[in-house]
Nucleic acid binder design. Structure first.
Lengths: 124, 124
DNA sequence: ACAACACATGAACATTCATTCATATGAGTT
DNA sequence: AACTCATATGAATGAATGTTCATGTGTTGT
């Protein structure tokens, strides 16, 4: 009889069961990690990073952003929706024009940490 | 005659040229933003987030991680390569076994910022 | 030398997702 | 009311990417 624990997924024997148990107990919940990955997924696209990076400097309307990045208004609008759903940007309507700005003061901090890591890489 | 600036990409007239110019001057270089997006792309996957989150607690070998996450050794190995290429984890070989650990003390900070944002969302 | 094991890796497949295209909405203008 | 302009959005297309499967590499033990 084989152990019934991971019959299908893992093809290797457990080496350090105690470590695994300990880590599992200390890790954040799956749901939290899921949400975290979803958040970083939003940051993990060049267009969206550029948009966020631009909005750090000033609020802008959709057309401004499209011109800034030399991209279609439609493409920008789609990405703004993603950023809005992730609560990273917000829109302020003024007549026909919608002015977008950062909805989160953490964006800067997250950027900063990211840049720190990248720059540290350059030492090698 | 039409303006020659953005003939193809953007279908809307520039609204705030001054703002756009100003923002463009202050924004980080495209290359830096590219690298930043690439970094966050690595964080933007559930499996990799789980791996990193586990390695925050303790170094582990590939099989340990596979058991921890109930996934194939192959899948874990592939993702470890991605994490290694991004200089987020490093491997220490001891006989047949390779022990992986975090290669970057910023990982914790980035996690923290991410969680802060997620938790702040819950207020709505 | 041979077998067993931990890990790495290339190709194939499936899914996710960013952009494009066409069109809709909604506000201002005449 | 008709028209223009800024923005939003649904469907389709194409590219990027995560997992699986099969196999390769390197180390340990007999």
């Amino acid at each position: 009889m084989i152990q019934k624990n991971e019959i299908e997924r893992c093809n290797c024997t457990v080496i350090h069961q105690d470590v695994v148990d300990n880590v599992r107990a200390r890790m954040p919940s799956d749901e939290n990690l899921y949400d975290l990955a979803d958040l970083f997924k939003v940051f993990g696209d060049t267009t969206r990073i550029q948009i966020l990076s631009g909005l750090v400097e000033s609020e802008m309307c959709v057309c401004d952003i499209a011109v800034l990045l030399n991209m279609t208004q439609s493409a920008i609008s789609h990405q703004l929706k993603v950023l809005k759903d992730a609560r990273l940007v917000k829109g302020r309507k003024e007549g026909k024009i919608v002015y977008y700005s950062l909805d989160d003061h953490h964006v800067n901090n997250i950027f900063k940490e990211g840049f720190t890591h990248i720059n540290e890489d350059k030492h090698n």
